[in-house]
Amino acid sequence: MTPARGDHDARREDVSEAVWRVLAARGFGGLTLRAVAGEMGATTGLVTHYFPSKRALVRHALEVLDRRSAGRPRPAEERVGQASG
């Protein structure tokens, strides 16, 4: 589902998900603004509206990953290892 016009946070999330799909398919060398736009079925202008550079794309994608990962439960082995360390 495409975000409603003006829903900038949702659009940024869409871009972030496209970044991960491009990375999975092409690797870091294949990650370009054009590749991300193509993955989304959008223009490079839309992508650069939110993220002016590859670095900005990657930074945001990592921030989203970090936020999502922080809320996930960890396996018991990880919790025990960290508690005793």
Results as ranks from 00 to 15, higher is better:
23 L>N: 02
27 G>Y: 09
41 G>I: 01
2 T>I: 14
51 F>R: 00
21 R>D: 12
59 R>V: 12
36 V>R: 00
61 A>C: 13
47 V>E: 00
51 F>I: 02
83 A>I: 11
45 G>S: 12
51 F>H: 01
45 G>R: 11
4 A>Q: 14
72 R>Q: 13
61 A>D: 03
73 P>F: 09
78 E>S: 09
74 R>F: 13
13 E>W: 10
27 G>V: 10
51 F>S: 00
41 G>Y: 02
25 A>M: 11
13 E>N: 13
45 G>I: 08
45 G>A: 14
81 G>I: 05
14 D>N: 11
64 V>P: 02
66 D>W: 07
35 A>H: 04
35 A>T: 03
4 A>E: 15
47 V>K: 01
10 A>K: 07
56 A>S: 09
47 V>H: 00
83 A>Y: 15
55 R>A: 05
23 L>D: 01
70 A>H: 08
71 G>Q: 08
30 G>K: 08
34 R>P: 03
33 L>Y: 05
58 V>G: 03
16 S>W: 03
52 P>R: 14
37 A>L: 02
77 E>M: 15
5 R>G: 04
80 V>L: 04
53 S>C: 09
80 V>Y: 08
9 D>V: 14
39 E>P: 00
39 E>M: 02
51 F>Q: 00
48 T>Y: 07
8 H>C: 14
27 G>M: 06
5 R>F: 05
76 A>V: 15
58 V>M: 09
71 G>K: 03
46 L>H: 04
42 A>M: 11
57 L>M: 09
31 L>P: 00
85 G>K: 03
35 A>Q: 03
15 V>E: 00
17 E>I: 04
41 G>R: 02
31 L>Y: 01
